[in-house]
Amino acid sequence: MLQIRTPKNRKVKRELEKRAPKLVETGKKTLILHGTKTSGVLNEVLTELYHLKKESAVKYSRKNDGIKPFESGGDASLEFFSLKTDCSIILYGSHSKKRPNNLVIARTYNQHIYDMVEVGIENFKSMHSFAYDKKLSPRVGSKPFITFIGEGFENVEELKHLKEVLLDFFRGEVVENLNLSGLDRVYVCTAISPNKVFLTHCALRLKKSGSVVPRMELVEVGPSMDMVIRRHRLPTDGLRKEAMKTAKDKAKKKEKNVSKDIIQGKIGRIYIPDQKVGDMAIVDKSKGVKRERREAKMKNRDDGPASKKPKEDSEKPKEDSE
């Protein structure tokens, strides 16, 4: 026996629909959490990365026991958290003697771990330690430029993987229309050595250059850090192939009220509301123009108060008769 279960209220239904697979995906949410032990540096890294991604991130502030990425069965709770929060990028911070200041960036596909990169954080500089003109500070949720520098990103497998993960992490929402005046941040990733990446966050200053294209100027606003590659796990080929699938064509929006004619061509039908002639005469509808209330008051002063005078019961019927 099966039972059809539907949400009991609209809110839940909407939430479920939001989480359903979409033909064209808009952006990934990030879950930020840490293990049983963290360091001060790592705490700062996690909070600042959270601030960078604030519009699409969830941060867990409690210790999480039993998460051991790269070990069999060690990522079960990560998958559960991903399912619970509907996040598909997970930043997991941990700190141990063997792997100090350890940050694992994992991606999930269909609520299962897709791939993982483990990096160690070095030379971390917080965003509070940078001095710059605060007018330049990037706004929350603005679309960033992402730059990768260095041949390592092409030749070394680990760095190539890290590049893809970082791009997925930083790119934010996929947009079609972009407001050029809203560009205000850049992430600069540089491969310093085959296992080290320097990452920094800059604000963007657009300067006049005399042509259409303004001259770009980068102002470092932080955070900045070095990432030392430790372990990484690539997805299997089958999984990668499945995850890379894209919709062949975008879901077309139904065209309404448009028809085609051989002679006249495209014909559109539009709705024009009734012309309310009585309403249209008055252009200015502001309060001061309205005279009704004031006029009513004047009228009341003339004969109104007289009628409000307390009268004895015996007199009342007389007035009515008059």
Binding site: K28, R107, Y109, K245
Partner: peptide, 12 residues
């Protein structure tokens, strides 16, 4: 975008 990134969830 030309760089292909993995989907979050399977195609409906």
């Amino acid at each position: 975008p030309t760089t292909r990134l993995p989907r979050e969830k399977p195609l409906p």
